[in-house]
Design a protein around this nucleic acid. Structure first.
Lengths: 248, 248
DNA sequence: TCAAAAGTGTTCCTGTTACACCCATGT
DNA sequence: ACATGGGTGTAACAGGAACACTTTTGA
């Protein structure tokens, strides 16, 4: 009944997303930082940032630390993704990985300089990664994209204030399709997720756009069960998807 | 870097849902089986079925076993819910619980006889449970209800074939509101999730209804990342909700 | 023939999509 | 003045909700 499990180890990994301009097109696209493994198994392969879970550290805290240690950034969004625990996912001993996904601000991410063993990759063109990390990223990508459609995570890529164009650019980059500016404006205003600051952004050679702020009144749906009662305000819908296939 | 965690223990628990008739009204409502704790901590309190994770058992398999050991039933639906790992969630040593949720068929659940230490409770009127299990059930309930609206999990409560009334009764019981039979029929037929068997169910003193079968063609969205490519067929929307508040 | 549930038809309403058009600013 | 994106208006369409109505069985 009370069997201990010395052969099982607990790890925490994080899929970190940032928007960075594409090398050739200049358009914003999704990138994520990976670390090169310096030991077996999978030595030399790229892998998700992570590490063993200390006994005295919260899961989300460990994920945030991981993120800070690799990118020197603070996540503006952090949510548990899934726990991967298949017997064969790591050669040798069994490893159970509680995986989080995070968003960091684009402007900060653009400044980060990386070393030999840390590199940013376009989310849609990854090399062969260590362990089951390709599948994990694929799932995280799916989560981000569907969540973008019904939730209000986009602002996590932006700063305190932003224009509707900037917000739309985020949506377009994540969803990989153009959105009608007029309709986008209306749907955002209708959702109540943004607030007009009254200020405008001058400088461009066109009509100065309004600056908006994220509306923190509406409680943010994060994907994790909340301590408080669930929101009475239903959010927007999203599309469903099979989970990582642990059961299949 | 490679710190072991002897002070942390891994457990698997499952929230098991079944539909059973309400004692007074006779209407179908959600119930779940709980087990009474026979030792500290929380001795005497009711808790979710579960146990320590063996080193050589898959997570989902452990969840299914747990379910079988308590209810003698086989789950028709099983999906990972969330991993709870707050430092203070268990007095004494640290316990990380990977929680699953499951659905079992109503007809089978109705036959199950339970003992002194296993009892079914109405999902909406639970006593004070051990650990953070009240919060876990609350989150599982939310997941079931939102998933019911955009996915096709309802058939998991039913047998191989079923009438539209039976399917609607499941939806009504879970969502706790009446649904228009005409519109329900059309939305089900339009979704393509059910197939007419050609047979009818006679016996009642009214027009014999058609018998339908679940359409397994459309891949079932389960909530876990799949090994295959994600469905190209977007499912129906659902409403969002904050996750367990691990981060708050 | 009547009650009860199966099943069909139709209208209303709301939210989304597509796109035409005007507005304000820097060069 | 004009190019450029900001911002508004509006018609067409699709899907859902409400509800009247017909059909088929057992009693």
């Amino acid at each position: 009944m009370s069997a201990e499990q010395p052969g099982t180890t607990l790890a925490v990994s994080t899929v970190i997303f940032a928007l960075r301009p594409d090398a050739t097109s200049g358009l914003m696209t999704l990138w994520l930082p990976l670390v090169r493994r310096t030991r077996e198994p999978y030595e030399g392969h790229w892998a998700l940032p992570g590490g063993w879970l200390p006994d005295d550290e919260e899961l989300a805290t460990a994920a945030a630390r991981t993120l800070r240690e690799t990118t020197s950034l603070t996540p503006t969004y952090l949510e548990q993704l899934y726990t991967f625990g298949a017997l064969d996912r790591s050669p040798g001993r069994r490893v159970i990985s509680v995986v989080y996904w995070a968003l960091v601000q684009s402007v900060e991410a653009a400044q980060v300089t990386v070393g030999e063993n840390v590199k940013w990759f376009p989310a849609d063109a990854l090399p062969q990664l260590a362990f089951d990390h390709n599948r994990i990223v694929e799932y995280a990508l799916w989560r981000l994209r569907t969540k973008m459609e019904y939730s209000r995570v986009a602002h996590a890529f932006l700063g305190e204030t932003f224009t509707l164009s900037q917000l739309r650019e985020v949506h377009e980059a994540v969803l990989q399709r153009p959105l009608d500016p007029a309709n986008f404006r209306r749907s955002m205003e209708a959702s109540g997720s943004i607030v007009d600051t009254g200020e405008r952004l001058a400088g461009a050679r066109n009509r100065p756009p309004r600056l908006y702020r994220y509306n923190a009144e509406l409680l943010a749906p994060s994907g994790a069960p909340s301590r408080r009662r669930p929101s009475e305000i239903p959010e927007r819908p999203h599309t469903a998807r099979p989970t990582p296939g642990e059961s299949s």
